[in-house]
Simulated scan of single mutants.
Amino acid sequence: MNNIEKTTLSAEIEINAPIEKVWALWSTPEDIMQWNTPDATWHTPHAENNLRPGGQFLFAMALKDGSLNFDFTGTYDEVIANRLIAYTLNDGRKSTIHFTAGNPVKLVEIFEADDNQPAAMQQQFCQAVLDGFKRYVEEKP
């Protein structure tokens, strides 16, 4: 029996926008390509997103200088519009994103860490992406 505990990390933001706008910008590939970066040295040149249970996603992420790139890919396990997204990455790690409507909207992402990367780095990367999403939503008319 395997009793290895997975390291779970989380990141959260509060966004001053209606939940419908937050949800739409989180899930539309054209928008994902605009906000899905931790900082200005990264970009997401391609995104596919089939936001439904059993649907798959692919976000191609890369450093703009070409020195590093990876595909963030997985399958959605549960989707409740404006409330919850749960998915499994292709490497088997699980993630859940909770959206709490209100003024502001609260978004909390809880995810299993990759044992091959420092946990603090992964948490900071995720938080930076969420911070960028907040800026994108709040600045977009």
Score class of each variant (00 low, 15 high):
M1V: 10
N2A: 14
N2I: 09
I4G: 06
K6V: 15
T8R: 02
L9N: 04
S10A: 12
S10M: 10
A11F: 01
E12W: 00
I13E: 00
E14N: 11
E14S: 15
N16T: 11
A17L: 15
A17C: 11
P18E: 12
P18D: 09
P18F: 10
P18Y: 09
I19F: 12
E20K: 06
K21T: 12
K21Y: 09
D31F: 00
T37H: 05
T37S: 04
D39N: 12
A40N: 06
T41P: 10
W42M: 05
H43Q: 07
P45C: 14
H46M: 04
H46V: 06
A47T: 06
N49P: 04
L51M: 12
L51A: 11
R52M: 14
P53K: 02
P53E: 12
G54T: 09
F57H: 05
L58Q: 03
A60I: 03
A62S: 07
A62M: 09
D65E: 14
G66S: 13
G66L: 15
D71Y: 02
F72R: 00
F72Q: 01
F72W: 03
G74Y: 02
D77K: 08
D77E: 09
E78D: 11
E78P: 09
V79A: 11
A81L: 13
A86N: 08
L89A: 00
L89G: 04
N90W: 00
N90T: 05
N90S: 00
N90H: 01
R93E: 02
K94Y: 08
K94H: 05
S95N: 06
I97S: 11
N103P: 03
P104H: 14
K106T: 15
L107C: 10
I110Y: 01
I110F: 07
F111W: 02
E112L: 12
A113L: 12
N116K: 08
N116G: 14
M121P: 13
M121D: 15
Q122F: 13
C126M: 12
Q127H: 15
Q127T: 04
Q127G: 03
V129D: 05
L130G: 04
D131Y: 10
D131I: 11
